[in-house]
Nucleic acid binder design. Structure first.
Lengths: 145, 145
DNA sequence: GTCTGTGCAAAAATTTTGCACCAGT
DNA sequence: ACTGGTGCAAAATTTTTGCACAGAC
């Protein structure tokens, strides 16, 4: 999967938000930095821990409010994997789905154009147009025997 | 989709549970009846409302405990659609995925062997074996133009 | 009679919100 | 300055749990 940092130059989110008429405050800038840095899928509490390490005055409410805002602006995606709380990841252009390691909680990203196509076909057959979708595989590492 | 009641004769769940060494109590029997009757995807509170209509002494805790039990025994499936609480449906033999109408909340079931196969392939390529999976399409009715 | 299941109330976990103050533009 | 954003504490929502009693086997 590797490094995708260059896909999110610092300020990418800032631009999205500014263009939407949203103020760039200190808490928001810090949260945005954390999201841009992370290649993972942290939940609100984890993001809060990371902001707290940088500026302990930032509240959990602000984290939640910012996540909701970013989601509405299309800057991040929210995932609710089985059982757990919402987890977030930035939304670059590239759509992908998730494979969750049920033993470690690790998330592997993947993408299948064939599956995407099939989904479209199915929706059309049922008389619907897809607005969004969610495909999650839950599995464990295969033992190389 | 239509009537699937015959796929769940009364007592189907009872057998599953009895075989698992679980006692068939009055609350459980009532909850099981509700699940067997419903062709829908109620959440815990809705199930509680339905049990309350039959026997108001049944508590919400018992509903939750029973749902968890049934899930563990493989008798029902839990779904967490975007935003909302867990919703449940009985697990017959037939696996299917869900298309959720984002306007009405209605759930349409579908199944695609081709998608299932592709999922297996993808997991294998990534070095995993699938334990479970979740595919949800969120969409709106297409206007017949 | 034994041991699991239940109701109740309290707690836990996650997320949202009212309000007075603060800060970005 | 104006307006939207923030921290805090309290509430809302969903789910779990401790405990004493009830009920299935």
């Amino acid at each position: 999967m590797g490094d995708r940092t260059e896909a999110n130059p610092p300020g990418r989110y800032e631009r999205i938000l500014r263009d939407a008429g949203v103020r760039i405050t200190r808490p928001r800038r810090i949260i945005l930095t954390i999201l841009a840095d992370g290649g993972d899928h942290p939940d609100a509490l984890e993001i809060f821990r990371r902001t707290a390490a940088i500026d302990p005055s930032i509240s959990l409410s602000t984290v939640y409010r910012t996540m909701k805002l970013l989601e509405e602006k299309g800057a991040i995606q929210r995932h609710v994997f089985e059982g757990g709380p919402s987890r977030f990841e930035r939304a670059d252009g590239d759509h992908h789905d998730h494979l969750i390691d049920i033993e470690s909680g690790e998330v592997v990203e993947f993408r299948s154009d064939r599956i995407e196509k099939l989904q479209e076909e199915i929706a059309r057959e049922l008389g619907y147009e897809i607005v969004s979708h969610r495909l999650e595989l839950y599995g464990r590492k295969r033992q190389p025997d």
